[in-house]
Every structure is written in structure tokens, then in C-alpha cells.
Design a protein around this nucleic acid. Structure first.
Lengths: 209, 209
DNA sequence: AGATTGAGTGAACATCCGTACACTGAAAAG
DNA sequence: CTTTTCAGTGTACGGATGTTCACTCAATCT
């Protein structure tokens, strides 16, 4: 039997523990709100003593904010993946939905965290989430502004459409996550068609500004 | 000084306490998730001893379900108010938004409860909320089916449009509640225009079925 | 080789938690 | 007028919670 060599640097070990804390928190928040998360049960899950937690985060709120950051890294990666493709307006919808569905399946924990805590209990956390979603809407509005079909639109209309899309995506993601796996295909299908319906609406829209 | 006569029947007193429990719970859930609600702090707020709670509810989950029921009574009243008016498709949107905005301002606690616990921690509560919202979507689909412009639409398309509307309303309501009072008019304004955009989409939609 | 750092330990604290139990006292029933 | 019912009381319990503090001991620095 060969011994597993464990030459782990100090920082590596610390990072591993930090990861373990984040993962354990994601898991525990998966059933029961972040506001109801207890430091001790978290530590128990990670396999450390409660006080060791403070070596990594100053407070539970900081943990929450770290989880928000992490979650939106996934989302931002998605957005960039969609952007890299051709920006044909029709194909863009399908592509977006496909990318969303693909990334939802793995990374469920992060998306569940976002949808659960978006309007959930802890102030700083839900504020951070809503702020990030706001930024998302702004980015999308900027992308939309570049499309020739929408060149006549003002900032106000672009923002309306963008937040409409973002809300639709988030709602669908939340439903997807909470639904039984068998229903998931149906949900992405509905999302696709609803997005198309909105596109039709945008095509026939008379700008306000 | 005339003494206030307090000839309160036994049942009246019990009902009053029950109301106090529901109100206190709504207040406490207003800051911090229902999953984080503690029996003792609830009792403290109401002004009763913890064990007295059990004279009214078998468990905290039952309290949650009672709050869900209550909240949707408000919502259903709204829906009926909208229905009573003329069903002109264009006026219907404005009317719906107006009624929603009017009822949101008072009854904030109920709507906040719904939006916070929709995907929140306690299983039975969020399931009950999602079930009620499902029913809502079905009712709306049934109403939409009666409109002459949509007579050619299949059940599938009607459901797509209905859930699109319901999600938009719920999202807007959640944002409205969490936003500063000064921003609220802007939010209902956006909601109105987004609803109109969807109507335009529906008008140009080619049914799938 | 010796000194320093810092992630993780373990006991102790004051406080909160849910629930069990025997009770009180006034309203309702007989 | 007596009996019953039952919303609310008060105590007591075993256990979980967040935070403190002094500590260990291996990786890193000098």
C-alpha cells in the first residue's frame, strides 16, 4: 500500500477549508434560509470547530456576500459565452436559453442561493443580489442598444426590455431548480417561447421617448 | 372618566389573540425569513407565554400556511375587482396595474410574505405559495381564453401568456415592496409599460398548437 | 537552527431555544 | 349554583446558539 503523499502548502489547506465552508453553506442554505443558518451546524458540517470559521470570514454576513460574488461569477461566465457567439437576434434567444439550461443543471446550488435569497431575510445579502441583477440588466440593455432593430430606442425602453428579460430568466431559473427533473425540459421550453413572445412584442413596440 | 366596557366573549378574545399572532408573525417575517422565526420571540411580541401559541396552531408550519391563505385572500379580492370592470383588453392592463398598486401600498406585509417565502426556506410554505400562484395562472388563462382576440389560441399558448403575466406582476410587486417609497411610482410605471409590451407580443403571436 | 505566524483546538460563558407539566381563573354549560 | 371547559400561566429541563480566551503545533520566515 503506497502512502498518499500530502505535501499541502499552508495556503492551499486554508483555501480548501474556505471552499469547504462555502460548499457547506450552499448545501445548508439549500434547505432552509440563509437567515436560519447557524454557525455551529455549519462548522459541524465542514468538520471544524465553530471558532475556526472566523479565520476565514469576519461574520456570517461576509460569508453570504462571498456566496453572492461566487454565484454571479457563474452567471457572468454564461453571459460572456452567449456574447461570444453570433449576435443574430433570433438565434440569440435560443442560445441564451440553451446556455442557461446547460449551466443550471450543474451549479444548481448557486442559482438556488440567488433565487432563495433575492428577497429573503438577510438585508445585506439580498441587497447585494438585487444590485448584481441590476448590473446585469444594465449590461443587457447595453447589448440590446447595439442591435440595429433597436437603434431608434431610448434608454428607457431598452431598460424596460432588459429587465423584462432578466426577470423572466430568473423566474424560470427558480422554477427550474425547484421543479422535479422530469418537468425541467418543459420549463426551458416554456421559457424559450415566452422569450420569443417578448421579442415579438419588442418588434412591434413603439418607443416611448 | 367613563370606564371602557369590555364585555368580550370567550371566542372573541381567542380570535383577537389569533389575529395578534398572525400580525406579529407577519411583522417578524418582514425582517428575517420565516424559517428563522422563533416561537419565543413571536410569543414575546404577542404578549403571551410561548406555550399559549399551541392553543391556536399545532405547529409553526401551520401558522405559515394560515399566512399563505390570508395573503391570497387579498390577492383574490384584487383579481375579482379587476374582473368586475369592463373586459376591454387595453383597459384591462391599466386597470390591473392600478388595482395592484393600490392594494400593494396597504397590505404590504402580506405581499412581502409571499415574495420572501415563495422560494424561501420552509418547504410546506413555499410549496403552498407556488401552488396558489399556479392556480392564479390557470384562472388568468381561463379569463384570457374568453377574449375574442385570443379565440384561436390553444391551452399551451394561453398558459404561456398567463404565467408570463403572473411572473411579471409578482416580480414587480416584490420590487415595489422592497424599494424606497420614492421609487414606487417609477416601478408601477415600468410594470405598466412592460405589460403593454407583452400585450403587443401577444397580438403578433402565431399560436403554436 | 531558531523564531514567528496563524489555522485549528477545546473548554467555558451567558443566552436563547422548544416542549413538558401542573396550574389558574373566568367564561360557558348543566 | 355547581360543574366543566379551556385560553393563558409559570417553572423547569436538556440542548443548541454565538463569542471569549488561552492553547497547540506544523508550515513558513529569518
Amino acid at each position: 500500500m503506497s502512502e498518499a503523499p500530502a505535501p499541502e502548502s499552508r495556503q492551499q489547506k486554508k483555501d480548501r477549508t474556505r471552499r469547504a465552508i462555502l460548499d457547506a453553506a450552499l448545501g445548508l442554505v439549500g434547505d432552509g434560509a440563509f437567515a436560519a443558518l447557524s454557525l455551529r451546524q455549519l462548522a459541524r458540517q465542514v468538520g471544524i470547530v465553530p471558532t475556526a470559521f472566523y479565520r476565514h470570514f469576519a461574520t456570517l454576513d461576509d460569508l453570504g456576500l462571498a456566496l453572492v460574488d461566487e454565484s454571479f461569477v457563474s452567471l457572468r461566465a454564461m453571459l460572456n459565452e452567449v456574447r461570444r457567439g453570433d449576435p443574430t437576434p433570433e438565434a440569440l434567444i435560443d442560445k441564451s436559453v440553451d446556455v442557461l439550461a446547460a449551466h443550471l443543471a450543474d451549479d444548481v446550488a448557486h442559482f438556488r442561493f440567488i433565487s432563495r435569497e433575492r428577497y429573503g431575510g438577510v438585508g445585506v445579502v439580498s441587497e447585494a443580489i438585487r444590485h448584481e441583477l441590476d448590473l446585469f440588466g444594465r449590461e443587457l440593455a447595453r447589448d440590446l442598444a447595439r442591435m440595429p432593430e433597436l437603434s431608434a430606442w431610448g434608454a428607457r425602453d431598452l431598460s424596460l426590455l432588459a429587465t423584462l428579460f432578466v426577470d423572466l430568466m430568473v423566474s424560470a431559473a427558480a422554477e427550474f431548480i425547484e421543479a422535479a427533473p422530469a418537468r425541467r425540459h418543459e420549463i426551458t421550453d416554456n421559457l424559450r417561447n415566452q422569450a420569443r413572445m417578448i421579442v415579438v412584442g419588442a418588434a412591434g413596440w413603439t418607443p416611448l421617448d
